[in-house]
């Protein structure tokens, strides 16, 4: 019920943000649409820890800045490789362990891997992720496991 209520508030805030008209009629329509969307989502059984991972949000505030810095650094590395006249890339496929306990945690990890230029998650299974890496450096960065540990910490909150 708490999840349903927060989903309703999120949807209604989204409506207010996009509509920009704040008269009685349109706000009423927004309330009705948000309520029916929540009703349908509940009937589909997707209002759970996987469909609405609110538990991850507090940890995300600490994780996001670190990820941002990592992504910027990786960006400049890949940009240098693209512009280098000899194209110094060594593509390889590696497997990294995914120690996250929950599905949203694993998805966050896979999404972070893909978000970082130089590594792309190809296949996600229960305990490991198959990754295509552009260079040895990118692969080694990922294999050091720092990102994985941080996503595990993200879940713990």
């Amino acid at each position: 019920m708490k999840r349903a209520l927060s989903l309703f508030l999120l949807l209604f805030a989204f409506w207010l943000l996009l509509s920009g008209h704040y008269d009685f009629w349109l706000i009423g329509l927004g309330l009705i649409s948000s309520a029916s969307a929540v009703f349908l989502a509940r009937r589909m059984g997707i209002v759970d820890a996987e469909g609405l991972p609110l538990d991850l949000v507090p940890g995300l505030l600490r994780y996001a800045p670190w990820l941002f810095g990592t992504v910027i650094r990786a960006n400049f590395d890949v940009a240098r490789r693209i512009l280098h006249p000899r194209l110094p890339i060594t593509p390889m496929v590696i497997r990294v362990p995914a120690e996250q306990r929950t599905a949203p945690g694993r998805v966050s990890y896979a999404n972070s891997i893909t978000l970082t230029p130089g590594t792309i998650s190809l296949e996600v299974s229960d305990d490991e992720i198959e990754v295509h890496a552009l260079s040895v450096d990118a692969a080694e960065d990922l294999q050091s496991g720092e990102m994985g540990r941080r996503v595990v910490a993200l879940e713990a909150h």
Partner: peptide, 15 residues
């Protein structure tokens, strides 16, 4: 190849 191109797309998508 396709997979290395995906990395290049990553740059436009993020930075």
């Amino acid at each position: 190849d396709l997979f290395t191109r995906l990395h290049a797309v990553g740059i436009t998508d993020t930075l």
